[in-house]
Design a protein around this nucleic acid. Structure first.
Lengths: 213, 213
DNA sequence: CCAGTAGTGTGATGTTTATCACATTTAACG
DNA sequence: CGTTAAATGTGATAAACATCACACTACTGG
């Protein structure tokens, strides 16, 4: 009787500890990414954190929905998400995957404060730190290094997109798949092949036939 | 005899005037683009200008060559350029056109101070204002509004590239051409169809067959 | 002005890839 | 733990598009 009580108490205690450890880990992930570009004091990082909101999503849950506002940019602390568009024929086209230490948003809706054209949902249970466009602009004004950080990040993203365009234009589907495997070896068995196919701009049947020869 | 002398003098005078007018126009084009995002005093704009170098290129001339350094970002004051990559098969893929009021560079080579993988050449005689990566970083530190300007520009570029990826994945070649015509109606008769085809990721024959039905 | 090059149109043919259909395997979850 | 859904493999067929080949026009530079 008495020992059962203590066992329960211990369970709750463990949960609390885990949540704390988790928060610490999430934060250090974000801090590590920022500090790879600009150095921050502890106080500055705490200040940066006040501009974020942490939230938890379950697999299949939508983070951004087309035709709704999407005023947040999302830093993935844990889990896996995708952004995709649905064309007139009802077909999905995946623009981006985002796992731990990546960002994901509908950039057009976010930066121009418009309604989303993209959807973002979770491929796994996920934990996310979101920053609103207002908070981001405020943060950039308050702490100028952060504007530099966002500029570097956006520039790197721009370069990556140019290379993806080049890949779409110059490579055959099997070459693109091989390149994807080389670039993101850890993603191939976290993401269903049909979704990788959609990201690469090919049908799931074509991708299925590829690896098998 | 005497009138001939004055005629010549007048010609030289006109040339000087034209060059001055041209410089003024080039500068006001750049200033207009910046001031659409951040306001500048006359002094500030003069200061910004000291970070640029103006140069003139002839049609077919290369501004950036693959395997060479490419430490400049180029603002097009007049003319028309393209950036393109050459794949292993020797085939050209056009990543970007840039006419008046646009920027063009090999962003990877520029921002990471690497050797270029892209080529940039002129489709028309062009006049260009170039800013080195060092001057750009210096300018951002000296005049913080300019960092904000570049962040906005880069973000807009990122959004445009995402839409181009979506277009490459979701649209048939004829739909992409129609969209190109809608987006850049003034470019269709400034650029040879074969180059537009290359930009759209289709063969010149396919594009030729499209408009004709 | 005229020779050579660049740009464009068009047919015939082959390749790549999408689509539809169905079978089989694996995972999810009450 | 068993039922339903998700994920994957594979064949047959069709569509989209590239490639090759050649003809024709327009432009450009000495």
């Amino acid at each position: 009787m008495c020992s059962l009580f203590y066992l329960k108490l211990y369970g709750v205690f463990l949960q609390l500890i885990n949540q704390d450890i988790l928060k610490v880990m999430m934060r250090s992930l974000l801090r590590g990414q920022i500090e790879a570009i600009v150095k921050l004091t502890d106080e500055e990082f705490q200040f940066v954190l006040t501009h974020f909101e942490t939230s938890i999503y379950k697999k299949h849950q939508y983070v951004v929905q087309a035709n709704h506002l999407a005023p947040n940019d999302h830093f993935v602390a844990k889990g896996l998400l995708r952004s995709f568009s649905i064309d007139e024929a009802g077909k999905e086209h995946i623009l981006q995957f985002a796992m731990e230490d990546w960002w994901i948003s509908d950039p057009q809706a976010y930066h121009n404060r418009m309604h989303a054209t993209l959807n973002i949902d979770c491929l796994e249970d996920s934990e996310i730190m979101s920053i609103s466009i207002d908070n981001r602009e405020k943060l950039c004004r308050e702490l100028n290094k952060m504007e530099y950080f966002f500029l570097k990040k956006t520039t790197a993203g721009y370069i990556a997109l140019q290379q993806r365009i080049l890949s779409l234009m110059s490579q055959k589907s099997d070459e693109r798949y091989v390149q994807f495997v080389q670039l993101y070896p850890n993603l191939i068995d976290r993401i269903p092949k049909a979704l990788i196919a959609s990201y690469l701009g090919i049908s799931r049947e074509t991708l299925s036939r590829m690896s098998n020869q």
